[in-house]
Computed example of a mutant assay.
Amino acid sequence: MSLEREDALINSYKESREKVIYFVLAASGSAIGFAMTQSKTEAFAIHHYIWIVAISLWAVSFFCGIQALEYLKQLTLNNAMVLRSERKPFEDVGIASGPLPPKVALSIVYDQTNKKYNIYSRLQLYCLLSGAVIYIIWHIVKMLLIVTT
């Protein structure tokens, strides 16, 4: 496989990861806005605590999406530094010398960053879905309270 085709596949994969993060960011923001409009005229009642949990989960989802994008940028920078270090001496790349060889240090940083990225991207999705389930539960509780009163 040619180098250009490999680069194209890698870029396509990276773009698809970014698109998912941006989609879930948009969904979280939209969910918060929608939920706010659904209860803006109601007086606060005990069942609104469930609503607050759903809003909070969507806010956490939004935050995790932003963090995931940050770690994705760091992964891209780390990959660029590894590629640059293969062409130039480490002193010219701007990597400070330390107790570990630079390639090992870059590998460790990459692994740590990738783990954090995976945590935040998964947490983003799980919080969005959990918020939706909690919001549905809130609606059911609200309907049950209306029926019983």
Rank of each mutant, 00 (worst) to 15 (best):
P99Y: 12
V93H: 06
K103N: 09
A96D: 08
V109N: 05
S85W: 06
L72S: 11
M81V: 13
P89F: 06
L83C: 05
V109H: 08
L75A: 03
A80L: 10
Q74F: 05
L106Y: 04
S107L: 08
N79G: 15
A105V: 03
V104D: 09
K103W: 02
E91W: 14
V82Q: 11
A105Y: 03
D92W: 07
L100D: 09
S97H: 15
L100P: 02
V104W: 04
N79V: 03
V104E: 15
K88N: 13
S85Y: 06
V109W: 06
L72N: 00
M81N: 05
V104G: 02
T113A: 02
R84N: 15
G98P: 05
E86Y: 07
E86T: 11
K73E: 09
A105F: 09
A96H: 13
L106V: 00
A96C: 11
Y110P: 04
S85P: 06
K88P: 00
V109G: 01
Q74M: 08
I108R: 13
I108Q: 12
N78T: 10
P101R: 15
Q74I: 00
N78R: 00
R87N: 02
R87P: 05
A80R: 03
I108C: 12
L72W: 03
T76N: 12
P89L: 14
E86S: 02
P102A: 08
V104N: 04
Q112Y: 08
N79A: 03
L100Y: 07
Y110V: 04
L100V: 02
I95Y: 08
A96G: 13
P102E: 02
P102S: 03
L72D: 07
L75D: 06
Q112F: 03
G94V: 07
L106F: 05
V82W: 01
A105E: 12
S107P: 03
D111M: 13
